[in-house]
Write a protein that binds this DNA or RNA. Structure first.
Lengths: 340, 340
DNA sequence: TGTCAACACGAAACCGTTTTCGTGAGTTTC
DNA sequence: GAAACTCACGAAAACGGTTTCGTGTTGACA
């Protein structure tokens, strides 16, 4: 990189001290008009830019927010990033994005790297492996170091920090209720293993809705997908039980299930109604397009970053961790309609 | 944030100088075994972490790479990010991700922020508004400041820096050729406005393939989508011309076109074959699934970051900008088959 | 006993900036 | 004409590390 001009070089060239230059550039009243003029003209001419690193060191602020996501090639998470970035920019922050790739080890390492002072605060959605291990000491350590932390979507209650979540139970309930209201009674659930808490919560909503309609849950038509294995093969078996509705906790599962349903000779939505989660492009562009629960990832990201910056700004204060619950909406499309 | 322990505090507590602490923590031979032992034990016990900012200031290196993307809720770009992140991590770098949101103004601002020393180098895919304006002085300025820069996918030739692109002409040719080989002759092209150069290049490939088959291009069945307006309405008109094939330069256009084709009573792939670009989830999960040109975003990202780091490492050397061309592959799926 | 090398550690400069606290010169004030 | 005050600027510390170059103490050796 080319030799950058610094306050020192300006000072030397103009025969003044660095303090004078610094003040002149800030338009301080301590400096005479003509000196200011000279210095500013020089700085401007040589395109002086203050060195960010030096400022960061001095201010003990980086104006950078760290973000750790389980993955990015995923509609929901990329939407959240957009929200975080917009919220951060509004307050003069930049974001440093890292991925855990759902791995516990990488999450721990990334957290360590980010907590060495490169960022003022961190936003995380927890990796599934970590959720499975139930090992959260890296987060607790962060909290005890008082580094501002906000968890979103995949959160864990006993980490004492701010959180932003969707109302997963309510959303699962809403989705199932919608199918029930369409006259569906044998509703398959395609969900994640139980350690992914969002899956577990949506399942609670599903079960709640069924109970309210006096329908017994049937374990045969509930599938917990193991993403290591072939998704379609795992879903397939539910079709042996004469189902008339499918609730999938994300859009990949929904699309797979719908495709299978069609392959098995069912018409969607006539024979089987399908409802998904995460209002992404797949749901929008598949045919029929899929009714989903929209998670409002953008809003989540923005709320998360606002919460975080608030915490950064009032670092001294003691506080009770806040939890923001974002409501989710039913987005009606072609894959659901009343049974005839 | 809690008071962090620094080398100074350790030095004071243990009654040694900061230089001794620094050396001891680096296992320097200058320090006696027992002193090292004491210092390391203390540092370990109090969980000492060197302050990254201080190191950055001293080394004049941030070990951070800036990335500016036009958007993120997009399969190709999120794949590229994955590649960049992985490549960066391998070399001990982190990435700072920003978005231009296709806006010229935001691109300029973001570039300015990143070039103040917060990053060691920058990777960019240019915003469409910038491509339309043809105003690249912000990039040229960066180059003249000798800040390492790599452009990918949407590049501009007269910015003198490293570049990573897909062979868009070849890919457009390959896609069109595939349709021709399937016996299609009236092939609609759904593309971007010409200022988005990837669109323009793919169009060249399309035209080249047609010419080779002695087919005259028909402007009526070529649509340049204006994303401000309704996409479907713009595509619709091509169906008035009795087409039997569609080549779309991205998967959104492909999905829209296919949906329209079906709504108009055509069978895909029997009546009309459809081929897209960007091998994303939409192509995979729509029905029929869509044959596409896979762009290998992950590889592009990784190559881009490797090029950048190479440049950062040999900053002193004069060099000729390199250009890496990634070949693209045809991914056969259900939406194309020979006409009967 | 004087010389020299090895050892273990410290002082100080440095990275680029901000900020507090002088300080000398000139100007008012009584 | 001395005290007080303003003005315009500089010196130095600070942020948290690293690194170069001493330097005082030992011990070995001639």
């Amino acid at each position: 990189m080319k030799q950058k001009i610094t306050i020192k070089t300006i000072a030397k060239e103009l025969g003044v001290s660095t303090s004078t230059v610094s003040k002149a550039l800030k338009d301080s009243h301590e400096i005479s008009a003509e000196t200011k003029e000279r210095i500013q003209a020089y700085a401007n001419y040589y395109n002086y830019k203050p060195n960010h690193l030096a400022l960061q060191l001095r201010n003990q602020k980086t104006k950078v927010i760290g973000v750790i996501l389980p993955k990015i090639v995923h509609h929901f998470f990329s939407t959240v990033i957009m929200g975080i970035e917009e919220g951060a920019n509004l307050k003069g922050y930049n974001i440093m994005v890292c991925f855990s790739n759902e791995s516990y080890k990488k999450e721990v390492e990334t957290l360590k790297v980010l907590s060495n002072g490169s960022v003022d605060g961190i936003i995380v959605s927890i990796a599934s492996e970590t959720l499975e291990n139930k090992d959260f000491k890296h987060f607790k350590e962060l909290v005890s170091e008082e580094i501002p932390l906000v968890l979103f979507d995949r959160v864990v209650e006993d980490i004492l920090c701010d959180k932003v979540v969707v109302d997963d139970v309510g959303a699962g309930y809403k989705a199932t209720k919608h199918l029930l209201e369409n006259g569906r009674e044998k509703i398959a659930l395609i969900t994640t293993p139980n350690h992914v808490n969002v899956g577990a919560l949506r399942r609670q909503g599903y079960e709640k809705a069924l109970i309210e309609s006096y329908i017994k849950t049937n374990k045969n038509i509930i599938v917990e997908i193991d993403e290591e294995k072939d998704i379609k093969l795992q879903i397939e078996k539910v079709f042996d039980y004469g189902i008339d509705g499918i609730f999938a906790v994300n859009e990949i599962y929904a699309a797979n299930a719908m495709k299978l349903a069609k392959e098995k000779g069912n018409k969607v939505p006539e024979d089987i109604s399908v409802i998904g989660f995460t209002d992404g492009l797949i749901s929008e562009y598949s045919s029929p397009s899929i009714t989903t629960i929209a998670q409002h990832g953008f809003i989540m990201g923005k709320q998360a970053v606002e919460l975080l910056i608030e915490r950064i700004d009032k670092e001294a204060e003691v506080y009770k961790p806040k939890k923001i619950v974002i409501s989710s909406d039913l987005k009606l499309r072609e894959s659901t309609k009343p049974s005839s």
